[in-house]
Amino acid sequence: MGDLTFVDVCSGAGGLALGLESSGFSPVLLLDNKPQACETLLANRPDWKVVCEDLIEFLPEEHPETLDVDLLSAGLPRVKSSAAAGRPNSEPELRQLTATIYLLHAVRPRALLLENLPALVDSPAYAEVRRFIAEELTHLGYRWRWFVLNAADFGVPQDREQGVLVALKEPWFESFVTPEPTVRVHVSVGQALRGSMAARGWREADAWADQASAVAPTLVGGSDNRGGADVGPTGTKRAWARMGINGNAFADEVPGPDYEWPRSDDVAHMPKITVDQAAVIQAFPPEWRITGQKTARYRQIGHATPPPVGRALGEAIAAALRSSSRA
């Protein structure tokens, strides 16, 4: 088997696709319905084929290169428990997941990778969703495994649990091994942001970094229908405050040489991180450019799969597909 190929849907800022690329997969097509995300993908990989279209309207027969690939991957919008119960207010997320599973019928890849919230793996609230997926995978001749990974175990400076489904055709499934952690010690926020915090000459950047000794809480991209960018809900902001960061908004730049760090418990007096630093927390490489205005950029980052997680999953799937047990 030569180069491995994949189709990626709900691609967003490209975190999952970038990780898969680094593990040896080549994309034949990436799909997203948000123009800003499509712009980000093409700004970084102008040679990628990016289709800016809703997954539910996507017709793979119009793109014949998608019909013979090794992997279909999807970092899908989080399915809410209300959607799992069939309530209409969360239908879009459930429809995207359903469309991805139905896409298997046309694309018939050797493997499927689906990333979503951890509760999808085993929560009773999602039992009907898992049952639907199991019936479709069985019908198409796949075997599968649900599991949860934490991005922090793969060198991402963030406590970010992700629910994962990997399915492979029968000849390859037995060779699939769930990825093992790649780091023994988690990377702290201080370690990750020390250099950028000092970039404009802030004299106390090292002192700040020394006390920011925990991993970051999960970045939350938020809804397109909500206001400006912040790091997430109240509990997330409190966790950032314990590391001396005001999570109520993002700064335009890191502190300069004249900034006096108040070492105060008052969040209003704490420094803020920048959107570029949020990308570091999500483990995007520094050369990867997220396009758009501040809020649009942060939402792309917050919704992304950290590339190191995508790489670990890609390496595990590639190893199975290249195994001697394949038909």
Rank of each mutant, 00 (worst) to 15 (best):
D230I: 04
A43W: 04
T178G: 06
R160L: 07
A319Q: 08
E315W: 04
V50G: 00
A43R: 15
N116Q: 09
T295C: 05
S90A: 14
F250R: 09
A111M: 05
Y298F: 15
D230K: 14
P171E: 12
D206M: 07
A241F: 02
V121C: 11
T66I: 06
V121Y: 02
L71H: 07
L193W: 02
N248E: 15
T274M: 05
F6D: 02
Y126L: 10
R311E: 10
S23L: 11
T236K: 09
K34R: 13
N44S: 09
D210R: 15
T234K: 15
E62G: 08
Q191W: 01
Q277I: 02
R226P: 04
E39M: 12
D252L: 13
E315N: 05
V183R: 13
D210L: 15
P286C: 07
Y142H: 07
P262F: 07
A74F: 00
V28W: 03
I301F: 10
P35Q: 07
I281R: 12
A198V: 08
V309K: 04
Q211Y: 10
T138Y: 13
A214E: 14
G201Q: 03
Q282P: 07
R311P: 02
H139G: 13
E315D: 07
K169C: 03
H63E: 09
Y142F: 14
